[in-house]
């Protein structure tokens, strides 16, 4: 079996997900080649052929051009599968490529079982095994699902490619996330509010518990999207990644994008009315309770210590 791994970079910097593609290939025992739109200044540690297109020519976001470049490489390498990260780059480009290849695309793979791909369903409450009906496939891998056992090593044999053009979508630059405000990464204790808080007034409960524990408060995305809490307190893939000594998730279901930002915390407590909430998968303690009742009681008892 042969895989074409689509690595990723942003502003010339290689993104870590690229190594998860290698880990997936290792798990399958597959031969590989790699493709990257990036910069020679930051190449993946990889023993194999790397088809490199310069981002200065191919563009940061130019799906038409990137697809054309990948198609050229597919012609040469004839891979059985083309593998992307399930990232803003991968989930945007993969369906376009699959369409041209007339290939099945299987999204957000978390594992392999009996030759079928395993993917999550319903906020990871369920799993699904998927079998492709086409010989060639396009696959995207869930962020964090595959990891190399050892630090990556190696030097790629770089084959420079160019030629992709695309004129339909015009990319004009990046806008960085607002800086300033709290630095959650420094906090030893983070208590986070999820949609389960129900209304903005209840942010105070979460803030109160955070204070009692000598920490900061954070939030899941819906709470930020509703403007109940500012964006620089958002934890997850599109917010911050945190690793405090203690993370308390209140009314947070545990979507993969939230877990990606906090699952490496040393100790995790979840407060949730739903005993089956996926946050239970990473929590050291799951308190099955209504946070509106439980959090004030807990806060009071901690203050009284």
């Amino acid at each position: 079996m042969k895989l074409l791994l689509i690595a990723e970079s942003r502003e010339g910097k290689l993104l870590g997900g690229s190594y998860e593609l290698m880990a997936f290939a290792q798990e399958l025992g597959a031969e590989t080649a790699m493709f990257l739109v990036g910069s020679e200044a930051d190449l993946p540690k990889y023993d194999g052929t790397l088809y490199l297109a310069d981002v200065a020519d191919a563009g940061e976001y130019n799906p038409e051009a990137h697809r054309a470049l990948i198609l050229d490489v597919i012609d040469k390498e004839k891979p059985d599968s083309v593998v992307f990260c399930h990232s803003s780059y991968g989930w945007d480009l993969a369906p376009r490529l699959a369409y041209t290849l007339k290939a099945a695309q299987i999204s957000e793979v978390v594992g392999v079982a009996d030759g079928n791909m395993v993917v999550p369903v319903c906020n990871s409450k369920l799993r699904r095994e998927v079998k492709a009906g086409t010989a060639q496939t396009v696959i995207t891998l869930q962020n964090g699902a595959f990891g190399l056992a050892e630090d990556p090593a190696g030097t790629p044999t770089v084959e420079k490619i160019s030629g992709g053009t695309g004129t339909v979508i015009e990319f004009s630059g990046f806008e960085l996330a607002e800086a300033g405000g709290v630095d959650l990464a420094k906090a030893q204790v983070i208590v986070s509010a999820g949609r389960g808080i129900g209304k903005p007034e209840n942010v105070a409960l979460i803030e109160g518990l955070a204070k009692a524990l000598g920490g900061e408060y954070g939030a899941s995305r819906p709470v930020v999207d509703s403007d109940w809490v500012e964006h620089n307190r958002q934890v997850g893939t599109t917010g911050q990644t945190v690793t405090p000594k203690l993370y308390v998730a209140c009314g947070i279901s545990g979507a993969i994008q939230h877990l990606a930002g906090m699952k490496k915390s040393e100790f995790i407590v979840a407060v949730n009315t739903d005993k089956d909430a996926p946050i239970g998968e990473v929590a050291d303690v799951l308190v099955v309770a209504d946070l509106k009742q439980f959090v004030p009681v807990l806060t009071e008892k901690i203050q009284a210590l």
């Binding site: 803003s88 780059y89 979508i169 990319f171 630059g173 806008e175 917010g239």
Partner: peptide, 16 residues
Amino acid sequence: LKRELEGGIKACVKVS
């Protein structure tokens, strides 16, 4: 349009 990328970064794009 602005596309949302990881870490809260956005990519600005124009299309007809």
